[in-house]
Design a binder for these strands. Structure first.
Lengths: 304, 304
DNA sequence: AAACTGTTTTTTATCGATTAAAAAGACAGT
DNA sequence: ACTGTCTTTTTAATCGATAAAAAACAGTTT
């Protein structure tokens, strides 16, 4: 059976929306809600019906009104876990399994075994593995399952070789953007976010991961290329789990990266290509070193 | 039910192998055959049983002998179509459908509809679409199927932007390879193949596609990177179907490309980086122009 | 003990059917 | 044109079945 995570997330978001309306106020139309909650009208109606049944919303010939904001606030939201789609659950469990228990390169991955271990259907596992293949961490041997390639220093080096090529190319494109490009404004805004985060870095350093991804994607936006975007999905993915996993010096590392970003942005604003290249290089190098440090490398595989 | 294409291919290959043995000669052991035919021992045994049943092979306490080479030669092979695995069949049919009938960007792709149209199970279609996603020609909208992005000039341009970056990088690495690297020898051999093909280009120009792929993969081998290899899969894939599809000036185009390859190789042998870059650029530019010409571009999407 | 062959167990590929969720479409009333 | 109601289609997810193929196990023979 299909999971109803879409409904549950829409229900939670709808509750937030409701709590911002005054008692007796009329709700937006279904189509407007559809737009706001990012779901189909069918799902919107299901959510509204639920609200109505709980006495939070009343209906007078078709039109809907907030009956009781207090009532709405008393409705319990679905837990975060319940709003995660199956595909994301599989991903989460697999990455945990991979990074914690079983980091040996060459390990065979067994679909049935994973399905039993995680308690999901084999089809879900299979679909995940197929999509995950492109990240370069597993390989398929036809008729004989999958092999884990290992989160090794080689992997990190190859990843960063490409990343540097792409980033230099995009940074150059960004620096030569016409001064009336709206991207400059967005860059200025994101620079502000960096400064704000830096001021509260002791408390909010966890927020860096998301900011990092947005910053680099903004740079890529200067000259869009679907293959670069798609490669950046890999980077984001790896970093997402790397951040979850490697907590060592996290605050310190993120602070350094924040400052590097700011230097990088200032170089972009100066439009001095050589300076951009320098600042970019500094940042990518330290990011690479950090990542390599947390790979499962022995001396032999590191040399090469 | 699983297809038995593995068995059928092994059967055909086994027949070839058998025909090279003299009457009465002993067959290699199951394990040796396993190695040669690239299948499991289970499949080897199935093939041998079939040979035995057909009277081509006899068995005397466990050991197997050629009973009659003539008998073996009379056995009919399975047709090529029967040895193609389901995944490749789906790919083939989908590409035909995409390139011929339905090239409009933005077209919705319906799993059930494709399954019915092709006569395959939905799971096979689904699996293909998931794998095919990374080629950048389709995109998934959660809970709402897939959209075809169009084989447009933009696609070709973005593809070639990356291709040029990667190829320059690999060509440079190749040119700086130590002179005792075995890759030089392989390059010399492939140069020979180019000359041979050029001599018979009128008759054999279809063979260029395969040679092209091997040539560029050899260059990438100078400094292996899994992400570049994986990107080259996309190039190969696109070209494979492009060659099948666009027959216009095929002989002429391939002859030009062959000469460009040879110039490119000679530049590599000279180890003059600037010359390598030049020759590489010439070749990639003409390849790009050819590809763009066959995309489904209108003026609007071409401008940008 | 290495190298076989024979036998049994596991795993993979593929199909078909089922269920609920979610989206999309049709249509009447204002 | 818009909203609400009702209907149809499509997707996500699971299950079970079946044959193919691989892998593991168990003896034999040299």
């Amino acid at each position: 059976m299909k999971t109803d995570t879409v409904f549950k997330r829409a229900f939670n978001d709808g509750l937030d929306l409701l709590s911002r309306l005054a008692d007796g106020g009329e709700l937006p139309s279904e189509n407007v809600l559809r737009e706001r909650l990012n779901v189909s009208r069918t799902t919107v109606r299901k959510v509204l019906d639920r609200f109505e049944a709980a006495g939070a919303v009343s209906r007078i010939d078709g039109r809907r009104f907030v009956r009781s904001g207090r009532q709405a606030r008393m409705l319990t939201k679905f837990s975060d876990a319940e709003t995660v789609p199956r595909s994301a659950q599989v991903e989460q469990r697999f990455m945990e399994w991979m990074l914690r228990d079983n980091a040996r390169p060459g390990t065979a991955i067994n679909e049935l075994d994973l399905a039993r271990r995680f308690g999901f259907a084999t089809t879900s596992i299979r679909e995940f593995l197929n999509r995950f293949q492109r990240f370069g961490l597993i390989e398929k041997r036809p008729n004989a399952g999958w092999v884990f390639m290992g989160f090794t220093p080689d992997f990190a080096l190859e990843l960063f070789e490409i990343r540097e090529m792409f980033e230099f190319r995009s940074a150059r494109a960004f620096a030569t953007l016409p001064s009336d490009s709206p991207l400059w404004e967005r860059m200025r805004a994101i620079r502000g976010e960096h400064l704000a985060l830096l001021r509260e870095v002791d408390r909010r350093f966890h927020d860096f991961s998301d900011l990092d991804s947005r910053f680099h994607r903004l740079i890529n936006a200067a000259a869009p290329n679907r293959f670069i975007d798609s490669f950046y999905d890999i980077i984001s993915f790896i970093f997402h789990y790397h951040y979850q996993w490697n907590k060592q010096d996290e605050r310190q590392r993120n602070e350094v990266a924040l400052r590097e970003h700011i230097d990088y942005m200032d170089a972009l604003f100066s439009r001095d290509i050589a300076a951009v290249r320098r600042a970019c290089k500094v940042h990518l190098t330290s990011a690479r070193v950090t990542l390599i440090r947390s790979t499962s490398g022995d001396a032999a595989s590191h040399r090469r």
